Simulated assay, not measured.
Amino acid sequence: MSIQANLQQIRECMNAACHRAGRNPAAVRLVAVSKTKPAALIEEAAAAGQNLFGENYVQEFIDKREAIKSPVEWHFIGALQTNKVKYLPGKVQLIHSVDRLSLAREIDRQWARIDAVADILIQLNLGMETTKAGTEEAELEALVRAAAALPRLRIRGLMALPPYLDDPEEVRPYFRRLSELATAVDALRIPGVTMAELSMGMSHDFEVAIEEGATLVRVGSAIFGERT
């Protein structure tokens, strides 16, 4: 199938999931995960109406951004090294993967250089997997409070990359937990913090994620094909 056909099928599935959950489809955005994919495929997706793309690697993103002529929105969704933050100010609309205070401080410092405010999500490691980034639940409130005190940061919600399980229903409890944590953080009424965004769900489980409250679903292989 073509990228255009893949996108149409995904959007139909997204709409159906919203309908099942009694949600407005306009409340959920599709982040096309374009890591390792050439600029030509991103342009093809943009021509098919996809305008939001997520990248995982800083250098690849910078190179690709220069090559893309279509007016698209970029999110950074991968693990972010502190020494690479300096390449991102003014180039990404949202960073999904803030999981430690040192990273938050560097984002604050780099965005101050362009006199702007960075929108970020706090990433959680709900499955406590040693191979994945993300703060622990027990550390969430402290991290949110400390990051929110930084003048160049605006916390917009939470992100999680739960364990990969073949049956999407087995992932549902993780999505539900992220939604519960967002509600709990929202109730703290911390200045500069909103829980407007929940970034969760990938190619094989995004429908369940939407049913549990996702506002951003990160889909790569279902759009562009499996990575080679």
Rank of each mutant, 00 (worst) to 15 (best):
D166R: 07
G192Y: 01
L165H: 03
P162W: 04
P168L: 11
A196T: 15
D167K: 02
T194M: 00
L165G: 08
I190H: 00
P191E: 02
E170H: 10
A196K: 13
S179P: 10
P191L: 05
P163I: 14
Y164N: 14
T194D: 07
P162D: 08
S203W: 01
T183M: 13
L178S: 03
M200P: 11
M195N: 11
R176A: 15
E197N: 09
V193I: 13
Y164S: 14
V185C: 09
S199A: 08
R189I: 09
S203G: 10
P191A: 05
P191G: 03
E170P: 04
A160L: 02
G192A: 01
P191K: 08
S199P: 04
L161F: 05
S199N: 03
L178T: 15
L161G: 03
P168I: 12
L161H: 03
P168S: 01
A196P: 12
R176V: 15
S203A: 09
Y174H: 03
E170Q: 14
L165T: 05
R172Q: 11
S179L: 04
D186A: 13
S203N: 11
R177D: 14
D186K: 10
D167Y: 01
V185K: 06
I190D: 00
S179Y: 15
Y164L: 13
L188H: 10
L178E: 12
A160R: 06
A182L: 05
L165F: 01
V171G: 09
R177Y: 12
E170N: 08
L181R: 04
L181N: 12
